[in-house]
Amino acid sequence: MRAGVLVFPGSNCDRDLAVALERATGARPALIWHKETSLPEGLDLVAIPGGFSFGDHLRCGAIAARSPVMRAVVDFAAAGGHVLGICNGFQILIEAGLLPGALMRNAGLKFVCRRVPLRVETTESAFTRRYHQGERVEFPVAHHDGNYVAGPELRAALEGEGRIAFRYLDNPNGSAGDIAGVLSRNRRILGLMPHPERAVDPAIGGTDGARLFSGLVEALGSETLERA
């Protein structure tokens, strides 16, 4: 699996995400600056890191979503590419129209920074295939605007299509339906507020996030071989 990590002014989880991907793939992912108009050849995964891209001006992720590299990511996704957006990356994916709903200020108005328990709601994706349905995992969250907004229709669609990937067991931000992460209709785009890349080393609090990355390698590694 060849992975690339986008870097915007204000990204601050890009290095952690690159380390998590490198541990899973054995190769250093490409770091891709936001002004690039195309992605490196042969990429299997685009990962969009957390942070405060463009200072969160206008709305979190709004400016980054209109950057040149995101036009290339929209094309990549339309061609069936896998895209992972974590925290600010999730906000960017929503602002770019690649995932539905909206992310608003946390209901408690406070920046929430702690480890939260989650339930894995579906194993039917390259991101979640190595977890068990209903499994409890712990990832850290660190955000001010993670309150997922979805009307009744969207929520019913997400439920019906099994596109809720993770749910909070103890909702930290007011998200509708305790939704922590959602999949696109083709199940190849995942956006989530919690940080799996901060849970890949026992020395810094757990390894529950590691299987998200090894699952991607398992799924996309083989896909690359089939294509070759």
Binding site: R59, A62, E95, G101
Partner: peptide, 9 residues
């Protein structure tokens, strides 16, 4: 429509 507002909310 394209930037200034998020018309979802």
């Amino acid at each position: 429509e394209k930037l200034l507002a998020n018309t979802v909310i």
